[in-house]
């Protein structure tokens, strides 16, 4: 058995080794090492500007779109180096992203979800219908939109739009879903729906979520990483990090001593 096969049999989805990222001369990430396990929710926390969103973007190479970004170190997705041995489009099919502000296309609910599959060459209506229904059901929004599939997505509430965006992501059957503060623009009920959804989705997907909400991280994540000034200060099971943090800086941040 080769090393690659040996790695595939583990539960590790991402392995990040000695990752450094620079915006021009400014070093935004400093020697990050961590592993992200399959079918788990990994939360990234830390004060604004600590590098957590920057780190999240490196996982599907969204930083490629930024000027003056230099990355060194290695990020392996199922033991393949995403920066050296993988096409960015292929990577983003497998590792998709949900953003802070819901960003549905100004199209119908149906067309939002069918957009990705259509681009990938699926034209058959029955097949698209099946994908749209399955994705909307997985995103726990089917019952709310099944009678208005052909109306504009922009008429949905913020929480519904965010779940629609998740459905749009699921239609492409990714392996990993990256969420960048997905509930910060939502009301508490919509937030709970997204959190329940994330907990449900982890059965089939790997989720990495950036959040400023400590309670959200402690409620839904299995592991939590605390970033500060571009450094990964502490990475542990969520229950340990929130009850017995080993680093004083983590303790001070999560208990609100600084921020």
């Amino acid at each position: 058995m080769t090393d690659i096969h040996a790695k595939e049999q583990t539960n590790i989805k991402f392995t990040v080794e000695s990752l450094n990222l620079f915006y021009g001369d400014f070093q935004a990430l400093n020697d990050i090492n961590l592993t992200i396990e399959k079918n788990e929710i990994t939360a990234l926390i830390g004060p604004s500007g600590c590098g957590k969103s920057t780190f999240l973007k490196t996982l599907n190479r969204m930083n490629d779109l930024e000027p003056n970004v230099t990355i060194n170190g290695n990020i392996y997705l199922d033991s393949v180096d995403v920066n050296k041995d993988m096409d960015a489009i292929e990577l983003r099919k497998r590792v998709s992203m949900v953003f802070q502000q819901p960003n549905p296309f100004p199209k119908s609910v149906y067309d939002n979800v069918a957009y990705g599959p259509r681009i990938n060459g699926i034209r058959k209506k029955t097949q698209l219908d099946e994908i749209v229904e399955r994705s909307l059901k997985q995103a726990a929004i089917w019952d709310e939109v099944k009678d208005r599939l052909h109306k504009s997505a922009l008429g949905l509430s913020g929480g519904q739009q965010q779940r629609l965006c998740i459905a749009r992501t699921l239609a492409l059957e990714p392996e990993v879903i990256l969420m960048d503060e997905p509930t910060s623009a939502l009301d508490p009920i919509s937030t709970m729906k997204i959190e329940d959804l994330a907990s449900e989705l982890k059965k089939n997907y790997t989720i990495v979520i950036v959040t400023h909400n400590m309670q959200q991280a402690s409620r839904i994540s299995d592991k939590t990483a605390f970033f500060l000034l571009g450094n990964l200060v502490e990475f542990d099971t969520t229950i340990t990090l929130f009850s017995q943090p080993s680093d004083k800086r983590t303790e001070e941040y999560i208990t609100g001593r600084f921020g």
């Binding site: 400590m214 309670q215 402690s218 929130f242 009850s243 017995q244 943090p245 303790e251 999560i254 208990t255």
Partner: peptide, 9 residues
């Protein structure tokens, strides 16, 4: 205050 870590303990 939803205390956590040493505060909660």
């Amino acid at each position: 205050e939803a205390p956590i870590a040493s505060d909660w303990r």
